[in-house]
Amino acid sequence: MMRRLRPAIAPLDYTRRWSMRLWVGLVMFFLYAPLVALMVFSFNDSRRNIVWRGFTTKYYDKVMHNDMLMEALGNSLTIAFFTTIISLVLGGLAAVMLWRFRFPWKAAVEGAMALPIVVPEICFGVAMLIFFAQIGWPTDMPWPFSLGAITIAHVTFCFPFVAMVVRSRLASFNREEEEAAKDLGASEWQAFRDVLLPHMKPGLIAGALLAFTMSLDDFVITFFTSGPNTITFPVKVYSMVRFSVTPEVNAASTLLIVLTVIMTSVALYFQNRMVQSGKGPA
């Protein structure tokens, strides 16, 4: 075991341990090796995904000119965006509710909250199909509203996940902090915003990531709640690969990954700068 040189400053610097680094490295390799292979094969000059036939960028060209794929991608990102926001609000509230209060039927509410997590996708998808058909949900609305049904369904299966993660986070909260804030004259809202919310933040971030991922990835429920004008990326991909995985699908995924990396990197860069400039004068 490595001798800790600066115990007062970094006693738990697990990331400095080579064994830890190796482990994280292996996990990352496990996660990324197939994806890297996928990216490489998006440049494969063959309609099939299997044998290397030479380098080409023609599938990127095809993707860029595949209006349907682009539309599907746009729809999926839009749905994921709104789903994440609504799920965060609902999931956060639900977590606080269950964590903070005692109320009649609490066990039933808790059970009901857990259900969207256990109900098989196909079962929920069919339930939503019947539901929207019965209430006569209009399927010919203009664009962002046409995604409403899908978004509602996504929020329903995403926000319990958010609630679950946030709640496990809240378990470590020391309620005296909130009490102290209130004793010092903070209103309920101020105490929530300035004391509880910061504590919930990692849980909320994790929950948001989960919700975004699940929404972006969902096929079954989306399929059953989509109307004639609302194709999403997974539905498109699912239909495409039924006719075998073409490099076009790989190219589209590669673009999606690259786009995400760029967007997140920019966000992280600015956040880091803000943190630094904020620290600067202090």
Binding site: L31, V241, S253, T260
Partner: peptide, 9 residues
């Protein structure tokens, strides 16, 4: 990140 790639892909 890998999980923003479609499950099927």
């Amino acid at each position: 990140l890998p999980f923003w790639t479609n499950l099927l892909i």
